[in-house]
Deep mutational scan, measured.
Amino acid sequence: MSIQHFRVALIPFFAAFCLPVFAHPETLVKVKDAEDQLGARVGYIELDLNSGKILESFRPEERFPMMSTFKVLLCGAVLSRVDAGQEQLGRRIHYSQNDLVEYSPVTEKHLTDGMTVRELCSAAITMSDNTAANLLLTTIGGPKELTAFLHNMGDHVTRLDRWEPELNEAIPNDERDTTMPAAMATTLRKLLTGELLTLASRQQLIDWMEADKVAGPLLRSALPAGWFIADKSGAGERGSRGIIAALGPDGKPSRIVVIYTTGSQATMDERNRQIAEIGASLIKHW
């Protein structure tokens, strides 16, 4: 067993022997301040990774656009098919120029040779490549099948209805392509620590998230040296922004954090800054 596999296998073990965790309302004060600064709703939840206990939450059962955070769930569904012998990570998928959609920095470079399922998941999570996500959605049967996968996990809230990039439209009061912070946090925890996926697939999923290259201005910008984070960000229309993450000190994750916002007129930089400040408060009061 590799060191990384050992780390993920012992996530519940280490967490069980940690000192009790206590909620700190100071972080919620910052979440509410972010709402004021952005002029928009902000949803927040913080779960203990081992027990699933909610440590703090704000608007945990209000719907927010998922945006690209759905790509972690998508690759979880792909990995479940791999575990069941219905898919192979090494299978190569070929596609054409007509398949390319807006923001496809990886797939646009491989029109000639195609990409493997493993490479597509890596591109979808680490670079948020939209064509990679659409190609992977095709392998599982489309958005409705991802929703069905989530329902089978016990998540009857999260739903995907459309493809990239239309799913980022974020129309107010439109339930399409949305989740709730509580539902997303619980589902992410199941994917990373539950028995739904094999140990190898859980490790692969967290490795992809740990290698995320496009979430630097968010929670990662607030992390002290030595902290662990595996995350996936999302951005959408109407001032929408979000991030889902597993993080913790001492090089291992111990909490799940989900943050979503929508309806702001603020710039992307300002949305990023507010999420980073929430992260800084979380870490300060850990």
Rank of each mutant, 00 (worst) to 15 (best):
Ala123Gly: 06
Gly43Asn: 00
Ala133Phe: 01
Arg41His: 15
Thr116Met: 06
Phe64Gln: 02
Asn50Ile: 10
Glu46His: 08
Leu47Phe: 07
Thr193Met: 14
Ile93Thr: 05
Gly52Arg: 05
Phe17Leu: 09
Gln4Thr: 10
Arg176Trp: 07
Ala185Ile: 03
Thr267Ser: 13
Glu277Cys: 07
Ser254Trp: 09
Pro249Leu: 06
Lys213Cys: 12
Leu197Gly: 04
Ala225Gly: 13
Val82Glu: 05
Gly263Thr: 05
Glu87Phe: 08
Leu282Tyr: 03
Ala200Leu: 10
Leu197Asn: 05
Asp231Ala: 06
Gly242Ile: 00
Pro172Met: 12
Glu35Asp: 05
Ala246Thr: 12
Val21Ile: 08
Ala124Thr: 12
Leu38Cys: 07
Asp99Arg: 07
Glu166Trp: 15
Gly236Cys: 03
Arg81Thr: 07
Arg189His: 13
Ser201Asp: 02
Thr198Asp: 10
Met1Gly: 00
Gly226His: 11
Met1Val: 05
Ile275Lys: 00
Phe228Lys: 08
Pro65Ile: 03
Arg91Ala: 07
Leu135Asn: 03
Leu196Pro: 13
Gln265Phe: 14
His156Gln: 14
Leu111Met: 13
His5Val: 08
Arg241Ser: 06
Arg41Ala: 09
Trp163Phe: 14
Lys213Asn: 11
Leu205Gly: 00
Asp161His: 07
Arg176Lys: 15
Ile171Glu: 15
Lys213Glu: 10
Asp83His: 04
Ala16Tyr: 08
Thr27Asp: 04
Ile283Ser: 06
Phe149Trp: 14
Leu55Arg: 09
Lys284Cys: 09
Met67Glu: 04
Leu136Ser: 02
Glu108Gly: 12
Leu218Glu: 02
Ile229Arg: 01
Ile259Arg: 00
Gly114Glu: 04
Pro12Ala: 13
Lys30Pro: 02
Tyr44His: 03
Gln204Thr: 14
Phe64His: 01
Gly194Met: 08
Ile93Leu: 12
Leu218Gly: 04
Arg63His: 08
Leu49Pro: 05
Pro65Asn: 04
Asn134Phe: 03
Arg255His: 05
Thr262Cys: 10
Lys232Phe: 00
Ala182Val: 15
Ile275Met: 11
Leu49Asp: 02
Trp208Ile: 03
Leu100Phe: 09
Asp155Tyr: 01
Ala266His: 10
Gly114Ser: 05
Ala200Trp: 07
Glu164Val: 00
Phe228Gln: 06
Gly142Glu: 05
Ala9Tyr: 15
His24Asn: 15
Leu38Val: 07
Glu119Ser: 09
Ile3Glu: 06
Ala266Gln: 11
Gln4Ser: 14
Gly239Tyr: 02
Ile283Phe: 11
Met1Leu: 07
Phe13Leu: 12
Leu135Gly: 02
Tyr44Cys: 03
Trp208Asn: 03
Asn152Ile: 10
Leu73Met: 11
Asp174Trp: 02
Arg220Ile: 03
Asp212Arg: 04
Asn134Val: 04
Ile256Leu: 12
Ile243Val: 11
Leu120His: 03
Asp155Cys: 01
Glu35Asn: 03
Ala183Glu: 12
Ala23Asn: 06
Ala123Leu: 03
Leu136Pro: 00
Val42Tyr: 06
Ala215Arg: 04
Leu196Glu: 13
Gly114Cys: 04
Gly52Glu: 07
Thr147Leu: 07
Ile140His: 04
Pro143Lys: 03
Asn173Pro: 07
Tyr260Ile: 09
Arg241Lys: 06
Lys190Arg: 14
Val29Ala: 14
Val8Leu: 14
Phe22Gly: 10
Thr69Asn: 02
Gln265Ile: 12
Ala200Asn: 15
Arg118Asn: 15
Val106Thr: 07
Ser201Lys: 07
Gly194Val: 07
Phe22Cys: 13
Leu150His: 04
Gln88Phe: 13
Ala170Trp: 11
Ala123Ile: 04
Pro181Phe: 00
Ala183Ser: 11
Ile275Leu: 10
Asp174Gln: 06
Ala182Ile: 15
Thr158Cys: 03
Ala245Ser: 10
Lys71Tyr: 00
Ala9Gly: 11
Tyr95His: 05
Gln88Gly: 10
Pro172Trp: 09
Lys232Ala: 01
Phe228Glu: 04
Glu145Met: 12
Gly39Asp: 12
Glu26Gln: 10
Asp48Arg: 04
Ala222Gln: 14
Leu100Val: 10
Thr126Leu: 08
Ile93Gln: 05
Tyr103Gln: 04
Lys109Cys: 09
His151Tyr: 14
Pro172Gly: 10
Pro105Met: 06
Tyr103Asn: 06
Ala230Phe: 02
Leu196Trp: 14
Ser2Asp: 07
Glu119Lys: 06
Val31Ala: 08
Gln274Ser: 10
Phe22Pro: 05
Gly239Lys: 02
Thr112Cys: 12
Ala235His: 02
Arg91Thr: 08
Val8Tyr: 15
Thr193Ile: 14
Met127Trp: 13
Ser240Met: 03
Thr139Ile: 14
Val8His: 15
Ala235Phe: 02
Ala15Tyr: 15
Ile244Val: 13
Ala222Val: 14
Thr116Leu: 08
Ala235Val: 05
Leu167Lys: 02
Asn134Gln: 05
Met268Ala: 09
His94Trp: 13
Val106Met: 12
Gln265Asp: 12
Asn173Tyr: 12
Phe13His: 06
Leu55Glu: 08
Leu247Asp: 00
Met1Gln: 01
Tyr103Val: 05
Leu47Ala: 09
Asp129Arg: 00
Thr158Met: 03
Glu119Asn: 08
Ala200Ser: 14
Glu277Arg: 12
Leu282His: 02
Thr261Val: 12
Ala230Val: 06
Leu196Arg: 15
Ile140Thr: 06
Ser122Arg: 13
Ala9Glu: 05
Ala185Tyr: 00
Val214Ile: 07
Leu146Lys: 00
Gly248Val: 01
Pro143Tyr: 03
Val29Asn: 15
Met115Trp: 02
Ala215Trp: 02
Ser104Phe: 02
Ala245Cys: 10
Lys284Met: 10
Asp231Val: 04
Gly154Arg: 07
Thr112Ile: 15
Gln37Leu: 13
Gly39Ile: 09
Glu166Cys: 11
Glu119Met: 06
Leu38Asp: 06
Ala266Phe: 08
Glu270Ser: 11
Ala215Thr: 06
Met1Glu: 01
Met153Cys: 15
Lys109Ser: 14
Asp83Met: 03
Gly114Pro: 03
Gln203Ser: 13
Asp48Ala: 08
Val214Lys: 08
Leu196Asn: 15
Trp286Cys: 01
Ile243Thr: 04
Leu55Ala: 06
Lys252Pro: 05
Gln203Thr: 12
Ile278Ser: 00
Gln97Lys: 14
Thr261Arg: 03
Pro253Asn: 09
Gly239Val: 01
Val42His: 02
Met66Arg: 00
Ile171Val: 15
Ser57Gln: 13
Glu277Asn: 11
Gln274Glu: 14
Leu223Tyr: 03
Gly263Gln: 06
Phe13Glu: 02
Thr158Gln: 01
Phe64Met: 07
Pro65Trp: 01
Arg189Gln: 14
Asp99Gln: 13
Lys284Tyr: 15
Val117Tyr: 03
Arg271Leu: 12
Cys75Ile: 07
Lys30Asn: 07
Asp231Pro: 04
Arg241Pro: 00
Phe22Tyr: 10
